[in-house]
Amino acid sequence: MRLWSLHPRHLDRQGLTGCWRESLLAQAVLAGRTQGYRAHPQLERFRAHPEPLAAVGAYLETLAQDAAARGYRFDASRIAQRPGDAAGLAPIPVTEGQVELEWQHLLAKLAARSPERWEHEAALSGPEVHPVFSVVPGPVESWERAAPTRDDGTAVESTDGQ
């Protein structure tokens, strides 16, 4: 499960559709409608939110809006709790280290499967985060399980045993 902290505008078609499917699964887990993935580490940040279903609903809403802007038809009726005022929703903190890890991870994926998209994204000065998140100082999140990668997609050797 990859619930990107990055704004969906950075994702290619595969990344956007995959994120939509996995976010719907996350919503089902948070609503107690499925037994699978209950202990998935990326759900920790949504569970910690005062309104988990509203937070994942706002997350899904942004994905649906980005998809619509690209001409895709995601079924927004599948969003269980659509935020009435997403601006009034408490943001979910995400660390600078997490954002950087995800950015490098995404660039490696784009380089392999969407070279034109990679060229566009790699030229940016950095990523924008999904609007449900607020960037705070700090290292990679404790729940992250992805191995850090270099720009060429190779794994970075960890010195701390992770």
Rank of each mutant, 00 (worst) to 15 (best):
V94A: 06
Q65M: 12
A26T: 05
A87P: 02
S77Q: 08
A87T: 06
R13T: 15
Y59M: 04
W4H: 06
R21L: 14
A67I: 13
F133Y: 13
E44T: 10
E44A: 14
A69K: 15
E144K: 09
V132K: 06
R150G: 01
L107E: 11
Q98M: 06
W4G: 03
L60P: 02
A48Y: 01
G57S: 05
A68W: 02
T149D: 01
E100F: 00
V156E: 12
D152H: 02
P93G: 08
L25Q: 00
G138Y: 01
M1K: 01
E144S: 15
L25F: 01
V140H: 07
L3S: 08
P8I: 07
G15Y: 00
E128K: 09
A87E: 14
P93A: 13
A90G: 07
P139S: 08
D75G: 10
A76P: 06
R70Y: 00
R145V: 15
Q35A: 10
H49E: 07
I92N: 09
S125K: 12
P93R: 02
F46Q: 01
E96M: 03
E61R: 13
L16I: 00
T149S: 10
W118H: 15
G18P: 07
P41L: 05
A67S: 08
P91R: 09
S125H: 15
L101W: 09
V132T: 06
E22R: 11
I79T: 02
S77L: 01
V129R: 07
E51S: 12
V29E: 03
E44N: 02
V132F: 05
S142Y: 13
V135I: 14
R9K: 15
R113M: 00
D160Y: 13
A64G: 11
A123E: 14
D85V: 11
A28E: 14
Q27N: 09
E141W: 04
Q14G: 13
G57T: 08
W20F: 05
R145K: 11
D66W: 08
V136E: 10
A48S: 12
V129A: 05
Y59W: 11
H7K: 02
W118V: 02
G88H: 08
H130T: 01
G97L: 04
A90E: 13
W20M: 07
H105M: 09
A69Y: 04
C19I: 04
H105C: 03
